[in-house]
């Protein structure tokens, strides 16, 4: 039985103390949709789980002039029902909506998706695109890490034992800015992304793209921010040639593997297609503002 202890802190400080003081391996439990499967093999090491869902701030989200503050353990089902957040960051909500089935969304959280650090996580490119930052609490106080730096490898994040992802913060978007997330899967639902693309686009009143952030997923060990793809768009009116250049830059930046979900060549190709399509969606949303 790998899980040998279960703890329920009610505050961030208490959670940090529990995490630090644990004498077995320890994992933070939010929705559990990855953790419970990963802890099933009989031979794995004893594990303590710290369930953070009784910490109120972990389970709420607020949006105002300061931007979005997101409780990392809030379920995707609750998040995707928030029209106030969706109207500002539609791409983030799209990504959250794509994680697993309705049942999985009832449990899975953005903080979990981020911390689990799968290369194919849907919300990570979406968060990178909108410039989200992780607020990490630990025994020595808090620190702030950009999402693109939070994930450091396959299944690895930058937190040390005793640290806890306390909240996710997103700055308010500039005027005429919007985001989009697209992923490619073989079926219509239930699959893990073969490739994903999160984009944020700012347009001016002349229809010129003035700023862009392009992030791609499932095509490298971590999600990648691709400045070259953004550079191909900025200053253009997003003509086909600009879109093609952004797609080519995304394909060039990707370092995919071949596996049961797709070949490296296929992923490299499809991620470009997704970037192109996601940019068009985000740009249209931005212009409609």
């Amino acid at each position: 039985m790998p899980i040998v202890d279960y703890k329920v802190p009610v505050s961030v400080d208490e959670a940090v103390i529990m995490l630090k003081g644990c004498n077995t391996a320890v994992k933070i439990l939010a929705g559990g949709t990855d953790l419970i499967i990963q802890s099933k093999p009989a031979g794995s090491d004893p594990l303590t789980v710290v369930d953070i869902k009784s910490i109120d701030s972990m389970m709420t989200a607020s949006i105002d002039d300061e931007g979005l503050t997101l409780g990392p353990a809030m379920s995707c089902a609750e998040l995707t029902a928030r029209d106030d957040i969706k109207s500002v960051y539609p791409g983030l909500i799209e990504a959250a909506y794509l994680i697993g089935s309705t049942q999985v969304q009832g449990r899975a959280s953005i903080g979990g998706n981020l911390s689990n650090a799968s290369p194919a996580a849907d919300t990570i490119p979406a968060l990178i695109a909108i410039g989200a930052r992780c607020i990490i609490a630990g025994p020595d106080g808090e620190r702030v890490v950009a999402v693109e730096d939070f994930v450091v490898g396959v299944g690895k994040n930058c937190m040390a034992q005793g640290e806890l992802l306390k909240s996710i913060q997103v700055p308010p978007p500039e005027a005429k800015t919007s985001d989009a997330y697209l992923r490619f899967i073989p079926r219509t639902e239930m699959d893990i992304a073969v490739a994903g693309a999160g984009v944020s686009i700012t347009m001016d009143s002349e229809g010129v793209c003035t700023a862009a952030r392009i992030a791609i997923g499932a095509v490298a060990v971590t999600a990648l921010l691709v400045p070259a793809a953004a550079a191909a768009l900025v200053g253009s009116k997003l003509e086909e040639s600009a879109l093609q250049a952004a797609a080519a830059a995304a394909s060039a930046a990707s370092k995919p593997i071949s596996d049961r979900r797709g070949t490296a060549d296929y992923r490299r190709h499809v991620v470009g297609v997704l970037v192109k399509r996601a940019v068009s969606i985000a740009a249209q949303r931005a212009q409609e503002q």
């Binding site: 073989p186 079926r187 219509t188 699959d191 893990i192 049961r260």
Partner: peptide, 15 residues
């Protein structure tokens, strides 16, 4: 490589 319903992809209601 794919001994599960995640990657042995049978049709879903939405497919």
């Amino acid at each position: 490589q794919n001994p599960g319903f995640l990657d042995y992809r049978i049709p879903l209601a939405s497919d």
